[in-house]
Design a protein around this nucleic acid. Sequence first.
RNA 1: CGGGGUAUAGCUCAGCCUGGUAGAGCGCUGCCUUCGGGAGGCAGAGGUCGUGAGUUCGAAUCUCGCUACCCCGACCA
Length: 570
Amino acid sequence: MLTSKILLATQREAPADAEIISHQLMLKAGLVRKLASGIYTWLPTGLRVLRKVEAIVREEMDKAGAQEILMSGVQPAELWQESGRWEEYGPELLRLSDRHGREFCLGPTHEEVITDLVRREIRSYKQLPANFYQIQTKFRDEIRPRFGIMRAREFLMKDAYSFHLDEASLQQTYEDMFECYSTIFNRIGLVFRAVIADSGSIGGNTSHEFHVLADSGEDQIVFTEDGNYAANIELAAAVKPEGERAEPSEDMQKQATPGMHSIEEIAGHFKVDESKCLKTLIVDGANDDLVALIIRGDHELNKVKAEKLENVARPLSFASADKIRKHLSCDIGSLGPIELDIPTIVDFSAAHISDFICGANENGMHFTGVNWQRDLAEPDCADLRNVIAGEAAKENGAPLKLARGIEVGHIFQLGTKYSAAMKANCLDEKGTATTFMMGCYGIGISRIVAAAIEQNHDEKGIVWPQSISPYSLVLIPIHMHKSQRLREAVMALYEQFSAAGIDVLLDDRKERPGVMFADMELIGIPHRLVFSERGLDANTLEYKGRTDEESSDINLDEAVSFIQKQLASG
RNA sequence: CGGGGUAUAGCUCAGCCUGGUAGAGCGCUGCCUUCGGGAGGCAGAGGUCGUGAGUUCGAAUCUCGCUACCCCGACCA
């Protein structure tokens, strides 16, 4: 490809609203442009990357025995009503109606459509197991799209759905997909972790997420160094503190704490560690009431764990300040478990401390030297908190590490959630109609592009993994428009590279060298060859890898084999 | 949807407080000089100042409504 023939669209400055590095670089490098909030147009260079990711995913899915199909992005409401999700899904589902007033939605996912297809088409166990996938544009009307392509409303996703008559078969396909995903992310060249995950609103039980590790990641994941345990922090169980609680050594006292609301202020005032304070959080209960959740001052509430409690409303919502004032006659910041007459659940580690400090349920007052059993009843306990770095994993006792991740893949065992609701079944060996067991497997294709940039960039721009770079190689001639000899040499080599099947870009713009260098580094092409009159005289070219400090001369006649070697080793 | 903010040239922004009819840098077009890391000069093109109303002799500027976008919370590939 010649740069003069394509819309390169590089920019010096990124729009001010681009927050994270991948968003800024995708705009600066001319990969995408915003059309509306969370909706983007892919420009030629960006589309090449997207297509490369897509190709890898497709190849590996095919290898794993999945069959590609393509379902409609627009789906009839009836199917969603059948599965119950027309009501369940909420405003994320973009609904529309046609000229006849019939209701449709823009597909955020395709469980209903595939289940409908399979219940019509698959009659016999002999056709199973079957795994169908598509690579297609999805739409989710996110409350808050942000970070550019990372969390867009419209995005490209690979989604696959498998069908089985028994658990063993589902488990087998699930494991095959796990392997397939690992191969895909390894091939792309991303540093990732597969973690145990919450299955969330899609339903089902067993579930893993694949996260690309990056500091800008929206998810917190935890894992042990030995690699034997990895989970989304939402799921990571905290170990109950061992041993007996220390005996009380202080008397309980009520003390004035005017104007102090945060744990930090209280701990600072009494000159104790935050772990000696209790944090009391009030959330909405399942039956229009309130529930108190209590954790140690230095801990964070884990929302997924809290949501699983019987008397807590789902989704979890913090009680409004008004409601708290009305029911508890004091404000957030002065709450505590003593004489609190709403259901109260205490985290194991908060129940293990003695001589602690907590709010007195009276504005501006706290108790110190409080002890369970002596000053108030032994509490109902549960695991409510996020684990912290360094503590032992419940599963194997190894110390946990924390990292941030970008979720790029998610696999679920759905069981019969959709097939049962939609009466999807087929005949087994004995001729009995049996409800399908299903698995579902997603990969965020467009998100991978952004995630790859988050993980691979420097001050000059993007540093593509070779596997998904828009071009493998760029040729930069210096003052080609002034030298016929140089032009001929460059064009000849360009043809050779093309013939060798290398994705080569020739920068034939009438630009100064600095402009070309800067643009190509911004775009992130992994290999660069510079042509000059001087080099031609010596029969050499200058080679520089994207992250190399210095360039090196190579023999003009060996250029193709040299680059082939670089590509093979990259 | 709740809370906060922004809207002026393709991009980044100034002008608004204190009304007097629109600017800079980058980018774009042409010419000249320059020519190995985002050059310099000259000449240009480009804006119903988001939108609707109001106040005023006069509104980018003051007031109100609307819309879009962004940031903080809840969702997810």
